[in-house]
Design a protein around this nucleic acid. Structure first.
Length: 240
DNA sequence: GCGACAG
DNA sequence: ATCTTGTCGC
């Protein structure tokens, strides 16, 4: 069990956050030293919010990469540490994610984030940031193209087209289900773009989104309800 | 200056 | 992300 600790000074404003990204970006490795797709463990990470009550819940779910069976789960609840700012998502999600990861006993293997890795305005998105702080191999699978451009990939599952920032390929639009909107894959840390796409296809035998993120999404939502959301439609004055 | 913008 | 009814389809 590893205690993934949050850096002492976590940014509170945009300016400092940008400086932190510039400082940590050089530590990103895209050497493919992570485990081969379909082997070992794959861990899904996701976060849910109740900004109204200033509560955030993170969930991490470790899967057997070969069978996609759940090996272990963990959650953590905390206070919202940063507002949502496009390009600074990591500062909002990472504190609680690290707390949840620290509660795991199993080796996380490759960590799959809901968002981007190096496909980022400054090449340092959530997945890359999490990878640098933990040393774990990470990658990102996002549901939207963010600010990047792409051509629609061919209809068959497995088809892909480059996700571009100008002329640079920062990620890939990958079709995980025939005829269905693609997902947007990018490398995070210690994982190549090709490996990230291969991992994604291993994780999507049935649904558009990776089994890892689907599991983590369901878990962080229930954790949030347990922590902050009493019956949402309970009339004022009722017991509870 | 204005709009767009991972979750 | 989150707010939300019904609806089409396997």
């Amino acid at each position: 069990m590893i205690d993934y600790r949050l850096p002492e000074a976590w940014p509170t404003d945009d300016e400092t956050a940008l400086a932190v990204q510039d400082e940590l970006r050089p530590r990103v490795l895209l050497d493919g030293s992570g485990p081969p797709p379909g082997t070992g463990h794959v861990t899904g990470v996701d976060v849910a919010y109740d900004d109204e009550r200033d509560v955030v819940a993170a969930a991490v779910v470790v899967l057997d990469a070969a069978t996609l069976d759940v090996v272990e789960e963990a959650t953590a609840v905390g206070a919202v540490a940063f507002p949502y700012v496009p390009g600074l998502l990591a500062f909002r999600e990472i504190p609680t994610v690290l707390a949840a990861l620290s509660r795991l006993t199993a080796d996380p293997g490759v960590v799959v984030c809901d968002g981007y890795g190096v496909a980022h305005p400054r090449r340092f998105g959530l997945a890359s940031h999490l990878g640098v702080l933990t040393g774990l191999p990470t990658m990102g699978v996002a549901k939207n193209p963010f600010t990047f451009t792409h051509e629609a990939p061919a209809a068959p599952r497995g088809s892909a087209s480059p996700l571009l920032d100008g002329a640079e390929e920062v990620g890939r639009a990958l079709r995980t289900r025939e005829g269905v909107k693609p997902v947007f894959v990018s490398a995070g840390h210690r994982v190549t773009l090709d490996q990230a796409c291969a991992h994604t296809l291993c994780l999507t035998p049935r649904y558009r989104l990776p089994e890892s993120t689907r599991r983590a999404d369901a878990l962080c939502r229930s954790a949030l309800r347990a922590a902050a959301g009493r019956s949402p439609s309970r009339p004022p004055g009722a017991a509870g």
